[in-house]
Amino acid sequence: MPNIPLEIKNLEKQFGGVHALDRVSLKIMPGTISGIVGPNGSGKSTLINLLSGLLPFDGGRVLIGGRELNRIIPHKAPSYGITRTFQNIRLFEQLPVLDNILFALTDRGVFGALFEKHGASHLAQAEEVLKMVGLWEKRNELAINLSYGQRKLLEIGRVYAMKSEVFLFDEPFAGLFPAMVETVAEVFRTLKAQGKTIILVEHDMGLIRKLTDYVFVLDSGELLAEGKPNDVLSKKEVIEAYLGE
């Protein structure tokens, strides 16, 4: 099973003098599901944006698969094995559901893509993904016409199709019905069984306890605590900073 270690060293990001992330260091164990929790504005989504290259870091390094990176260029993130979902769903709205998945499967190069039409193998992979997230029957619908939950599932299916090694999920369960939550949880279990590494940003502590192997707590851009979910989530400083339990 492929196992790519991911380590973040002293990662730093400021927005106009405000530290969104202040020298945060994390070591993500390969093949695990790591939860990132913290109150709003604690830096969780910033961390995901830095790791996927959507924002440049102001300081620090990311070590992935033996490579040390001082910056991540967005379109090169998949070549490091990183893929992500977005907190606010970002599909290709006026493309059919099937095309949203095929997009993740076909050639990345300009010339390769120009002389490529999706083939039977692409369709078979897309069918597998769409059946897994329960959207195969909707394959010819435009993404914009799906319900909120279906759109969320499509976005999760799209990153699953990437066959990456490290998956960054930014609040994938938000606003989902229980049946859909179970579908996404099943995707997580499948990925974990394949040895993939998952970083999950989530506010639902029940899901964090149920799904994750390890948890990092961020507060005001700093790492407040880390450890096994039940241990970390019962710490007094974590409860005070965030949980209000």
Binding site: S52, G53, H75, T83, F86, R90, L91, F92, L95, R108
Partner: peptide
């Protein structure tokens, strides 16, 4: 549709 999203897919 969404250039930034297209980028992160490589």
């Amino acid at each position: 549709e969404d250039e930034q999203a297209a980028k992160v897919f490589g």
